[in-house]
Amino acid sequence: MNVILIAVIVLGVVGLVSAVVLFLASKKFAVWEDPRIQQVSEVLPQANCGGCGYPGCSGFASACVKAAESGSLSDLNCAPGGQAVMEQVAGILGLKASAAAPKVAVVRCQGTCDVRPHGVEFDGVHSCKIQNMTGMGETQCLYGCLGEGDCAAACLFGAIKVNPATRIAEVDESKCTGCGSCAKSCPRGIIELIPQGPKNRKVVVLCNNKDKGALATKECKVSCIGCGKCVKVCDKFEAITLGTNLAHIDPDKCKMCRKCEEACPRGAIKAFNFPPRKPKTETAPVASAAAPKAEAPVAKAPVASKPEAPVVKEAPAPVAPVVEKKVETPKDNETAV
């Protein structure tokens, strides 16, 4: 009896002292946090991708609460969560979410092994950033994809991968949240975030080469040479501008007419997720008149393969039998290389 009593008293006293210490400590070291931060945090995807520019989701949440004091959330956007999450966040903070078009990443390079030969061999750490420090890298193009997969390592959603056959990074649009981690990780700034577009359709210049035409031609068979033909066919909408020997399509102005895709003599412009063209409407006279020779390189490029369904992912390996023929050519080339 005595033993039990002593044990109870001792434990009780220890517990009491600890409780007092804990109580005092919690008072002394308490840090007040806006409860809304926790609430906002809860609706965020918790991917901690950093696409918003803040250190993780909790960082973004506190930024949101801070921004709420100034009355606007317009500078903030959670790309993986999209509009739905931003509306929820705005609801918690008693604000209105500004409409932000969901974005998706595109790799602006089509320089596969067969169109852009790897002249030297890089022997070192498999990192684009490190290969980029050697200067040119393995190919002759100073602007193209290095293919070591820094973007794939940066992507938290498994949406971007380097195709081992082409050694070019490819985006899986169904998984891409448009957070932009890959774009930040690319030492050559090849990856661009563009609006998803209606029915996921978009037209993009898939090249980043800023060299002059003659040099760009030598470096890669599907490079943009800055000839300006696309700018001319787009004179109605003025969506295409020519930078340093490089065309760029402004997605906000683009009307998806796909004229530029046909006009490009290098096959550097690609339309994503459009239904296959009917043979009837194919503007054969235009293509042959503008550049009779142009068709060959366009056909050779594996990216020229057109998906058969209206909303298809940017599938690396097309399955339609019609397409297979076109893809075969580069595959043969590859084994020859």
Partner: peptide, 12 residues
């Protein structure tokens, strides 16, 4: 190990 490759990246 490619120590300097990585250190160079870090340094720059």
């Amino acid at each position: 190990r490619p120590l300097l490759d990585n250190i160079r990246l870090g340094k720059s």
